[in-house]
Write a protein that binds this DNA or RNA. Structure first.
Lengths: 157, 157
DNA sequence: GAGATGTAGTTGTATATACAATTATCGTCT
DNA sequence: AGACGATAATTGTATATACAACTACATCTC
């Protein structure tokens, strides 16, 4: 993997980014972990994103799209399309709310079943991920998310 | 945000996923942090992914696509398309390597300039991200990535 | 109550991501 | 030399993601 470099000299700042950039690390780690979960979930016909949404919707009961966006820090247009796909699969049902602008999403029985059947696979992925991050890493992650919600870094949309 | 739930009872396991899932948290956090960096970088005409690739390529010197995939845990087809876009921008140059199958990527002067000009914006985003994660969080993140590379969770492609 | 302002969701467009299949090349073995 | 298996990259297809623009509805203000 280490290759002979034809020009070893380049700005110090670039080296700094390479060594310290939080986004690089976080994105890299997320790619790896996402792959882990998706591979576990694939036989269940679910992606980790879809599972996220099903779980959030289950917890919220009848949820407005914006509520789900808020808890997942998801952009509204992203969710809109995710929901499209999941409605096509009949995992989510859309009802119009009292306010003519809003709608309410609800997990269908089929969606709930799909989710439940995926739990064992999730558990396996979760164990591997836990091993990879270590207990302190997981704890730090939890704290960061709590902070994020508290500080309310404006969520998109 | 807390809404009246029409059905408060649903499987315990689902609650468990909601409260503990590492993928949910990591992805959520990554969405937020990615947004942070992208907003900072947008005036410089760079995305965080593109910056990642420029930095990796700069550090490696002449890099084979697979080398970049390896250090960033990126799937080869993903990189292939990212590189396409960046070649169109003239930030990367592709030369054919000695082996007829491989190619070598090199950051062009234009690419290097674009990257350097983006550093101040990066620095601002980095500070905010650091604040958000806290020093322990950042340290844990660093450790996790080091571990990931050590344990060599097979990278894709 | 009509127009201004604001909010919820969808649609247009682009990037980022990955898996599967394909293409092109390489190396080896006979 | 030719066949076969391995490797590097590209291409086909689908999901995930976000910003900007738009649509439809609501609320506020005068």
């Amino acid at each position: 993997m280490k290759r002979k470099s034809t020009r070893e000299s380049f700005p110090t700042a670039v080296r700094l980014v390479a060594e310290e950039c939080i986004a690089v690390r976080l994105r890299l780690l997320t790619r790896a972990i996402t792959r882990l979960y998706n591979q576990a979930l694939r036989p269940q016909g679910l992606t980790v994103s879809q599972m996220n949404i099903l779980v959030a919707a289950s917890c919220l009961g009848e949820a407005r799209p914006q509520d789900i966006c808020h808890v997942l820090h998801l952009e509204k247009s992203t969710l809109s399309r995710d929901v499209d796909r999941m409605r096509r699969q009949r995992w989510l049902n859309k009802k119009s709310g009292e306010d003519g602008r809003t709608s309410l999403l609800e997990v269908t029985p089929a969606g709930a079943k799909r989710l439940e059947k995926a739990i064992p696979a999730w558990r396996r992925a979760q164990e591997e991920a836990h091993l990879l991050l270590g207990e302190p890493g997981c704890a730090a992650l939890g704290r960061a998310v709590t902070d994020l919600r508290k500080k309310g870094l404006r969520d998109p949309g």
